[in-house]
Design a protein around this nucleic acid. Structure first.
Length: 481
RNA sequence: CGGGGCGUAACUCAGUUUGGUAGAGUGCUUGCUUUGGGAGCAAGAUGCCGCAGGUUCAAGUCCUGUCGCCCCGACCA
């Protein structure tokens, strides 16, 4: 056993030794991605894409439940259109890719490959919104976008990435603000219920706002190594974009007024979040709700009569109960299969061998804690469902514990530095006066930047951690991915 | 974009200092034996040495450029 354990550790770099290398080992060895010859553009392989499809399916259902419709905008934005909102173009221009030629013809107005689609939605809304009766429009699209990033990492920062972007337009500011909050809550609920990942909901500081937004809200998660990851954002635009793009409607009093807008998105980065929240030294650990395979059946001595048949029978039973299940009947050894599916993060493994069949039972092993139990084949569906819940709950609990353990309340700059020095990275809770200067100073002196102003406020002290002037709010600081 | 490391078989890498027939382990294929934690033996297949130029009788090895990957910063979802 000890020897075999060592072998598996050899296959992946230990996360304590080198977290970054551990991460890239996982994405390659669990067959989530493959690099291509274009920097920052990766092949999302079937196993990785299946995770995304599950994320899409669940989220899309939540969007539809909250009244949203899917649309699809073009991939290209003419430069003149991108220019219309000043802050927006300033924020995105440095990282857009340009199409300058069509065939051999040079384009008069070059085209930007969308880095985000606010401008396209605005152009469209200007065309279709005329009356208060046309509002609201609750649109979403599932597409890929391109941002010419300088340094890239699979899922966490790639030049092309998959996402969904919701773009809504409302008659009143109140309605739009409500929408912004609603979708942030949808994201938080999804992360907790489907990804088993606790998140902090809050507002971004002004320096961290989306280009062109009046307010940006985000959910922040803490990864296993103590670094923060923004897992989703929701923006309130006010009527700024409407003014820039001349979107107006006639209200009930027959007055021409500007509507109010929002946008919100999550990306394939969520897959990176799942890897870094739940993974361990044996590989990926997937939350059952999004795992492409929820239970893998490994037949033992499968050449013996009745073993494969029993495995298939079990597969059919579980499939009928709606569980995503696979029998591995390849001629690899059982030990190989155990290690393989642990690497791939399959939440539940079921072993069936001659000894089990004699006793009408099987062995179930849960991935997150590798606990083994003997379970009767009678009513196996309920048992497996129970184990999947157990994995989900276990993952959520461990992730929450990790976050709590790595969250520190600090009341002075020195304390922040000391805590980070002593315990490594994590969330720092500290009071803030609201001045950008102090935000910058904290980052410069301690290395942690502001992550968000959480909705759940605490009063750690009366004064700003940096300048000592009266504090306005508590901020989460942290190193970010 | 700055600093550092690296591109040789599917993977991990040796060979580059000192130019001279392309290597190892793992994996892959076939057969037999195995099967409750990455099995054993035997036989076999696999290379634009990242790409483009240059130097040379001769380049994986030297020179120039370029593309990509990893790490640390700055920026971002």
């Amino acid at each position: 056993m000890a020897k075999d354990n060592k072998k598996m550790v050899d296959a992946i770099t230990s996360m304590d030794e080198d977290f970054a290398k551990w991460y890239t080992d996982i994405v390659k060895k669990a067959e989530l991605i493959e690099y291509t010859s274009v920097k920052g553009c990766m092949v999302i392989r079937p196993y990785g894409y299946a995770i995304w499809e599950n994320i899409q399916r669940i989220l899309d259902g939540m969007f539809k439940e909250t009244g949203h419709e899917n649309v699809c905008m073009p991939m290209f934005i003419p430069e003149s259109l991108l220019q219309k909102e000043k802050d927006h173009v300033e924020g995105f221009a440095p990282e857009v890719a340009w199409v300058t030629h069509g065939g051999s013809e040079k384009l008069e107005d070059r085209l930007c490959v969308r880095p985000t689609s606010e401008t396209l939605f605005c152009e469209h809304y200007a065309n279709i919104v005329h009356s208060y009766r046309d509002l609201p429009k609750l649109y979403n699209q599932w597409v890929s976008v391109v941002r010419w990033e300088k340094t890239t990492r699979p899922f966490l920062r790639s030049r092309e990435f998959l996402w969904q972007e919701g773009h809504t337009i409302h008659a009143t500011a109140e309605e739009a603000i409500e929408e912004t909050e609603r979708m942030l809550n949808v994201y938080a609920r999804f992360c907790e219920e489907s990804l088993a990942m606790p998140v902090i909901k809050g507002r971004k500081t002004d320096s961290d706002k989306f280009a062109g937004a009046e307010a940006t809200y985000a959910i922040e998660a803490l990864m296993h190594d103590g670094k923060a990851l923004q897992a989703g954002t929701s923006h309130y635009f006010g009527d700024g974009f409407a003014k820039a793009f001349e979107i107006m409607y006639t209200d009930k009093e027959n007055k021409k007024v500007y509507p109010h807008q929002t946008s919100w998105g999550v990306t394939t980065r969520l897959i990176g979040a799942v890897i870094m929240t739940h993974g361990d030294d044996n590989g990926l650990v997937l939350p059952p709700a999004v795992a492409p395979i929820q239970a893998v059946i490994v037949p033992i001595q499968q050449f013996k009569e009745g073993v494969l048949e029993k495995a298939r029978e079990l597969e059919a039973t579980l499939k009928a109960a709606g569980i995503r299940v696979k029998v591995d009947d390849s001629d690899n050894s059982p030990g190989w299969k155990f290690a393989e599916y642990e690497m791939k993060g399959v939440p539940v493994r079921i072993e069936v061998g001659p000894k089990d069949i004699e006793q009408n039972q099987c062995v179930i092993v849960t991935r997150h804690n590798r606990e083994k139990s003997f379970v009767s084949l009678e009513g196996i569906e309920a048992a497996v469902e129970g184990k999947l819940r157990e994995v989900h709950d276990g993952l959520y609990k461990a992730a929450l514990e990790n976050r709590e353990r790595r969250t520190y309340a600090c009341t002075s700059m020195d304390e922040i530095s000391d805590v980070l020095q002593k315990n490594g990275d994590g969330f720092i809770k500290a009071m803030w006066c609201g001045e950008e200067e102090c935000e910058d100073k904290v980052k410069e002196a301690t290395g942690v930047g502001s992550r968000c102003i959480p909705f759940e406020q605490e009063k750690l002290s009366e004064v700003c951690v940096c300048c000592g002037k009266p504090a306005k709010c508590m901020v989460y600081f942290g190193k970010a991915y």
